[in-house]
Nucleic acid binder design. Structure first.
Lengths: 184, 184
DNA sequence: CTTAAATTTTAACCTAGGTTAAAATCGTCT
DNA sequence: AGACGATTTTAACCTAGGTTAAAATTTAAG
């Protein structure tokens, strides 16, 4: 995600609407039942969005956000409905963010920003469709291999149980898969 | 999905860009490796998008489109890349459609249409996120119950094997689930 | 270094759903 | 009604991944 489709002049009308915030590891970006009010751009650090299962309190990771990516609980943000998820910093982090109301105002007053909003939503849908496809068509082993390929940076920085959680499988299951792969 | 967020005047600039097509049951809307060039609005009938597994040629349904919904292979359409899927009429059907190039032209020349494009993409992302969530958090039994709830019309009109395919399970598995539910 | 805590792997057993093929049903056509 | 094809269920067996708890390993702290 980037702002490259926008001229500097168009971007400049958002000057003054952006704020900076520093997050400590573990600090919340947005919490469950809270409406996500901010679209953030990660300047440094890593965030994750996760869901807490009602039956056993287990956390399941939905998404990771690294530096130079947007961080936002998208469904909650665009629909302005309470979030099902928690989003929090996995490391100390720095984010510049804009308020939903300000963004909507930009959308209304600027064709270029409305365009940005479309591209943003289209990229979000790409991400979500990819995830759906991977769950529908790929085995856990393939999902793991693709994750390693697509997030070579994350793989060394975060505990494996965060990855198994993201892949939709249990810790022991990921261990089995890794063993299987090593044996090859 | 609707055009209700647009004034008649804004909508009118698209007059002349829409065409009507009648589909026979089984006729293709778009095929695998074809770039999806059209955004369609289903006036009557039902379409489905499905994927053919390489290993065994088995079809897996991705999505159904009923009357008064848009039909489009969204990822292929917005990115203008070859489609992984087939989309075809499950019944005789009637569709009004617009060409990608014309839609992009509307986006460029009209703020209202760019807004429509954003809402379209946001709704697509909502659908995709919902699907991802259902696969990540719900058992096949829950997915089936939700499908019945959300598509009460489809459930009587299409064979069960299309539904099991959509749920990401095999036919015998859906039969077991239905048996289990009856026994309750 | 040593110890405690966090992480990862292993093991043993369990379950949902996959696979294959053979019944049952159901629909439709004559 | 009878018969064919399509659809759905059943059955028997198989496998990936779940579950639980313990063991091994790694990391961080003192």
């Amino acid at each position: 995600m980037s702002f490259s489709s926008m001229t500097l002049e168009d971007f400049s009308i958002s000057e003054g609407l952006w704020q900076t915030k520093y997050y400590k590891k573990g600090e919340a970006y947005n919490s469950v039942r809270q409406v996500c009010k901010f679209l953030g751009f990660v300047e440094a650090g890593v965030f994750r969005t996760y869901h807490i299962e009602e039956k056993n309190g287990e956390e399941k990771n939905i998404f990771f956000y690294s530096a130079n990516q947007l961080v936002v609980s998208f469904a909650s943000f665009i629909n302005q409905v309470p979030c099902h998820y928690h989003t929090e910093a996995m490391t100390d982090a720095k984010v510049v963010f804009i308020h939903y109301d300000d963004l909507i105002h930009l959308y209304k007053t600027s064709h270029a920003w409305e365009h940005f909003g479309r591209i943003l939503a289209e990229q979000a849908s790409n991400i979500a469709f990819d995830r759906t496809e991977s769950l529908l068509f790929q085995s856990a082993e393939m999902r793991y291999l693709n994750f390693v390929k697509q997030h070579p940076n994350l793989i060394n920085d975060i505990p494996l149980y965060h990855i198994s959680s993201y892949l939709g499988i249990q810790g022991p299951s990921l261990s089995r898969i890794r063993k299987r792969l090593l044996d090859k």
